[in-house]
């Protein structure tokens, strides 16, 4: 057990379960986009592991692109507004987009991204997320492909972070409350 593993209270999905589910999702997506060349838009950085595994299981031609937006840091009197810090390289007007997320939680970030992409008039936009945490949803976003629905727990690993750490864990695990600060609440 390494020092990252020690901060995990329980493993939700191990690498074997992940591999199996991602492979199934790849098949679903290949079927859904038969005859077209979709652009897969990864939402950085939470998508990285999921997207790199997923594309290996998609058996149709596809293009890849990435987008990143600034994250909320609260506490300051004015924390500004969300903005795109890495935009797409492709022109997406008239194209079929599949947005790839690591997790959909409140829906705020992906809701903003979907609105922004929609304004560029793609032919279609669909959303694929590895994890869906519906208990915390504030902005309703339609999810077309979902790996797992999870309970309202703080999860990290498989690309998902806490303060930029734990992304490299090969599994999805629940982080200890002592680490997040939740134990004091």
């Amino acid at each position: 057990m390494n020092e990252l593993d020690r901060d995990i209270v329980r493993v939700l999905f191990d690498s074997e379960a992940i591999e199996k589910r991602v492979s199934e999702m790849g098949k679903e997506i290949s079927e859904a986009y038969k005859g077209v060349v979709p652009i897969l838009v990864g939402v950085l950085k939470g998508c990285i592991m999921f997207m790199s595994d997923l594309i290996k299981h998609i058996k149709i031609p596809l293009k890849m692109d990435f987008i990143a937006v600034s994250s909320y840091h609260g506490t300051q009197p004015t924390s500004g507004a969300v903005r795109i810090v890495k935009d797409l390289d492709h022109v997406i007007e008239g194209r079929e987009l599949l947005v790839i997320e690591g997790i959909v939680d409140t829906g705020m970030t992906v809701g903003y991204i979907l609105r922004n992409l929609q304004a560029r008039q793609p032919k279609s936009i669909r959303l694929c997320t590895f994890l869906d945490k519906p208990a915390r949803r504030i902005v309703n976003v339609p999810i077309d492909f979902c790996g797992y629905k999870i309970p309202d727990r703080f999860v990290v690993g498989y690309g998902l972070d806490f303060l930029q750490l734990y992304r490299n864990l090969p599994y999805v695990g629940i982080l200890k409350d002592q680490v997040t600060g939740l134990e004091k609440t």
């Binding site: 994250s71 909320y72 840091h73 609260g74 506490t75 939680d105 409140t106 915390r136 309202d152 703080f154 806490f162 303060l163 002592q178 680490v179 997040t180 600060g181 939740l182 004091k184 609440t185």
Partner: peptide, 11 residues
């Protein structure tokens, strides 16, 4: 939990 997500409760 929302605050924790953004690291606002971290030690």
């Amino acid at each position: 939990r929302l605050m924790a997500k953004y690291g606002l409760l971290a030690p």
